[in-house]
Lab assay of single mutants.
Amino acid sequence: NMVHPNVICDGCNGPVVGTRYKCSVCPDYDLCSVCEGKGLHRGHTKLAFPSP
Rank of each mutant, 00 (worst) to 15 (best):
R42Y: 09
V7F: 03
P5W: 03
I8H: 10
I8F: 07
C26L: 01
E36A: 04
C9I: 01
M2F: 05
L31C: 04
K38C: 05
S51D: 13
V7H: 04
T19D: 12
R20D: 06
H44I: 02
N6G: 13
R20H: 07
V16A: 04
G43H: 14
H44N: 03
V25T: 11
G39R: 06
Y29R: 04
Y29E: 02
A48L: 12
P52W: 00
V7T: 06
Y21A: 02
K38E: 11
G11S: 10
C9F: 00
G43V: 14
G18C: 03
L31F: 06
E36D: 10
N6L: 07
Y29Q: 02
V25N: 12
S51L: 10
T19C: 11
C32S: 01
K46M: 14
T45S: 10
L40P: 04
V34Y: 12
N1P: 07
S51F: 06
V17C: 14
R42W: 06
L31E: 04
P15F: 05
V25G: 06
N13E: 09
P27T: 13
R42Q: 15
S51K: 08
C26S: 01
M2G: 01
R42I: 12
N6T: 04
C9L: 00
K22T: 11
H4M: 09
N1L: 06
T19K: 12
Y21I: 05
N1R: 04
V34H: 09
L47Q: 15
H44D: 03
T45V: 10
R42D: 15
G11F: 05
T19Y: 07
D28E: 13
H44E: 02
G39K: 09
Y21R: 03
D10C: 15
N6K: 15
G39S: 10
G18H: 04
L47V: 14
D30F: 15
T19N: 09
C12G: 01
C23P: 01
G11Q: 13
V7M: 10
V7N: 09
V3W: 06
D30Q: 12
P15K: 13
H41I: 03
K46R: 09
Y29N: 03
C35E: 03
V34N: 14
V25R: 06
P27R: 13
P15N: 09
H44C: 05
H4C: 13
G43P: 07
H4W: 13
F49V: 15
L47E: 15
P52L: 04
D30Y: 15
C26Q: 02
L40F: 12
C12I: 00
H41L: 03
K38P: 01
C9E: 01
L40R: 11
I8T: 15
D30L: 11
C23S: 03
N1E: 13
H44W: 01
S51M: 12
P50K: 12
P5A: 04
P50Q: 10
E36C: 05
P27V: 04
G11E: 11
P52Y: 05
D10G: 15
G18F: 04
C32F: 00
G37N: 13
D30N: 15
V34K: 10
K22H: 13
N1I: 09
H4Q: 09
